[in-house]
Design a protein around this nucleic acid. Structure first.
Lengths: 164, 164
DNA sequence: TTGCACTAATTGCTTATGCAACTAGTTCGG
DNA sequence: CCGAACTAGTTGCATAAGCAATTAGTGCAA
């Protein structure tokens, strides 16, 4: 490492991994998205939102929490929730303790759509991703990519800790 | 595995890996894209195209090849090339052996932009991705995700082989 | 209690992307 | 040589996503 680099340039191995991540994501997501559309089903982003709600207690989440989980900007989430609400898959509910806020609440129809989408989505995950990944590799991927996904949050916490 | 599953549902380990892939990609790409925009630089897709051209012999590639490399639809690529051509970073050139076709050719200014973007992009890759990945993990990621990225092509070849 | 800095969500605007349809050109069988 | 099937690239249309600005509400500090 030269003095001027400050570790700011990735080495070839990590760079190759980065390019592989971009290509794998684009190929797999693109293919799954196409299959879902062909089958007349909702797009992946809809599934992500409905799934996040289904996982949450009482099937409800504040909009900003939802934005974090599906990794979408606030404005993007507002409009995505608009579309889902228009389709009857969820509804907004005012937050009693904070009058600015709203919950997104999964509706019965939303749950039904979630169940209906899963088989097709699962087939896509297997056909375009899981098929190429061994059990051990899956564990490794989860560990590494989990750290990458947490990056933002972690960095913020680190900075806060350094400051405070 | 039940008889009706036909391996069409991913096991928990691979499913977790899939979700980690989605989240890691969204977080890292989003952060890098934001940093580039803040620095007044071109978006990632521009870099990808210019880079693909820079790698190709004579800095030129047929448009459909370019579409494959950057994993974009044909129409998407047409418009992306429009924007890059408008910015003077590349130009179209008619293909002498196929009058339907065109090359995208990297311009001198395109090369310059590519060089100018790299430091910022590299910093982003390190800060939001490489930082969380060890050398061995990088190798494993490249291998696994490389297979995933190749998926499409491979599947088509397999089918062709099975048919022929 | 009043004012100020902050957060939650939405909206206007701009840009990016895909599908389907189209034009143009190639290729191959008969 | 001719037409049918295919490929290259572009365009119309619809949709998705982000930033910046806006509205509304919270909470802390003097």
């Amino acid at each position: 490492m030269s003095a001027s680099d400050h570790e700011s340039v990735p080495d070839p191995a990590r760079l190759a991994a980065w390019r592989a991540l971009l290509n794998a994501h684009a190929a797999a997501v693109g293919a799954i998205e196409r299959d879902l559309a062909t089958a007349g089903l909702a797009p992946l982003t809809w599934y992500d939102v409905l799934f996040a709600l289904a996982e949450a207690p009482e099937g409800r989440l504040r909009l900003h929490e939802l934005a974090d989980r599906v990794v979408l900007s606030r404005s993007g989430l507002t409009r995505l929730v608009d579309r889902l609400e228009g389709a009857g898959l969820l509804f907004r509910e005012a937050c009693p303790t904070d009058r600015r806020g709203a919950y997104a609440v999964l509706s019965a129809e939303g749950k039904a759509i979630l169940r209906r989408m899963w088989p097709a989505y699962a087939r896509g995950i297997v056909a375009y991703f899981a098929r190429y990944v061994s059990e051990e590799e899956a564990g490794a991927l989860t560990a590494v990519l989990g750290r990458v996904a947490m990056g933002d949050t972690e960095a913020l916490r680190d900075e806060a800790a350094a400051r405070g």
